[in-house]
Amino acid sequence: MAEDINRYLRQDKLPHIWCPGCGHGTIMANMLRGFARSRLDQDKTVVVSGIGCSGRATGYLDFDTLHVTHGRALTFATGIKMANPELTVIVVTGDGDGAAIGGNHLIHACRRNIDIKVVLFNNSIYGMTAGQFSPMTPTGATATTAPYGNIDQNFDLCELTRSAGATFVARGAAQQPRQLIKIFEKGFAHRGLTFIEAITQCPVNYGRRNKLGGARDMLNWQKEHIINQTKYESLAAEERQDKIPSGILYQDKREEYTERYEKVIASARGSEN
């Protein structure tokens, strides 16, 4: 049987505000299933979110939760983790919140390799403000602020965070819940900056405007285009063009930031004596 997630949800705050067919709920539920498998202490876990559709997740999660300013969740999370390294600190963010306004914080958190689990709900659009393009909106797609087509190049956030120093990088999708659970379970067990990009559908503000159909059609698009990394690597370059690799894309061991700071404390105390 799948893990029971109700113990991690604030029942009286549900149903959530996300639109019918939005994949955010699927991502959040499977994040909680991964959390249940990881056996981390619910009372010693803090979830921080910013602004946007993803930001609303903290209201539903029964942990210590903090809903902050746009793009800055990682900065608050850094303070929390530094203050008390025993806490598990999770950041829930979106493609606007985490990759645009919060992009600088994202790369610097990766550089430090601080033990924060960053879960980025990527729905390719600013959903809460009704459909402006984000740094994850594909080139050529239409948005309210790109009525003639988006001329911006979108990020590959997994490549970006890996280059910046994250030691666990993974990508999953709402269409592949079992893989998501595994990614979350492994990601929560990892010590160091954990970056998980979760691709999710926004039928109302992205799909509809780009004629991608409803939620079910968008899930089928994910099924076709998001493929396991191993399979992706077996493809010829031209076959990869419209494909996105998923799974745990990168994992490495490097000393974590708060552990390094413990050494600073030890050395400062040593020099004092």
């Binding site: 049987m1 799948a2 997630i5 109700n6 949800l9 549900l14 149903p15 959530h16 996300w18 067919g21 939005c22 994949g23 955010h24 709920g25 699927t26 539920a29 499977n30 299933r33 709402a174 269409q175 819940p177 079992r178 659970i181 899930l219």
Partner: peptide, 17 residues
């Protein structure tokens, strides 16, 4: 198979024994 439970965005469904 639990596909519905794992995919439901609104936590509506549960597959039980």
């Amino acid at each position: 198979c639990e596909n519905c439970e794992l995919s439901c965005p609104d936590f509506v469904l549960k597959v039980v024994d």
